[in-house]
Amino acid sequence: MHLLFEPGFFASGPVRTAVVIGGVAAVVSAVVGVFTVVRSQSFAGHALTDIATTGGSGAFYLGFNPLAGFIGGGVVGAGAMDLIGVQRVRSRDVATGIVLGAATGLAALFLYLDTTSSATTGATQQILFGSIFTIDRSTVPVVVVLSVVTLVGMAVIRRPLLLHSVSPELATVRGVAGRGIGLAFMLALAVSVGLSSVAIGSILSTALLIGPAAAALRVTRSIGAATVVACGLGIATTWLGILLAYDSADWVRSGQGLPVSFFIVVLTFLSYLVTGVPAVRRLAGRPGRHPAPADPAPADRAPADRAPAAPAEG
């Protein structure tokens, strides 16, 4: 046991805070992440992390808790992207790019001010790459409440959201308001990005959002199963990352532990690679094609808009 759990691991207050916040952030990220991948909104998720960086660095400069900035920035960004989304696809891409550029530029300014005003380079590291061991314990209740609200919200909208994600047209026919569903989901995405920004930093929060979800989607047969597996993977990688980072203090000569985010991202990446191995997918029973007895699948896709009528020739 000593090999893995260094003495003092469970007794440490910062570790306990990290375990709670990391676990909660992993669960919210996994639940929201599954839909993010299914809806092909990974880019929106990434865009939100940039805007969350601006919010987080700004909040740090003004002396607020970065969490407020991460989430505030994300929510404003989500609203802005929804407004932009009304327009045509090309102008939407351009506008997203311009807003992102401006937000990142602002983040550069805030991070510069953070560093110079507090005479430490720690701010940049904390905002961009997270520092889960230095989180104040008073943040825990806020994180938990936000997570519960987000998870309950996701549970409430899950069916219309799923149908809309699978086919907006089928959802519209059943009376699902696509606009409202899309906005509600963007808000959940913003909160999720904010929570994982606290855990592993704003720049890396996409890793926790997309990684476990994408890995889970490879080896499962239903959205429900994918969500459960993604939560498991997210919690496992986060907690293992925290453990390894804690242990790593003994590995390097300086006695300073390596960043948690590094371990979490590496583990996430590994889990994604492993779930891509065909043998693993078979083990998980993910059906590729069903065993079709004498089913003319390729011909089925061939265009056949002309019936084999005898052309009138003569």
Binding site: V156, R159, P160, V166, A171, R174
Partner: peptide
């Protein structure tokens, strides 16, 4: 989802 795809809750 044809039965309850529009249903919240």
């Amino acid at each position: 989802l044809g039965l309850d795809g529009q249903r919240f809750g």
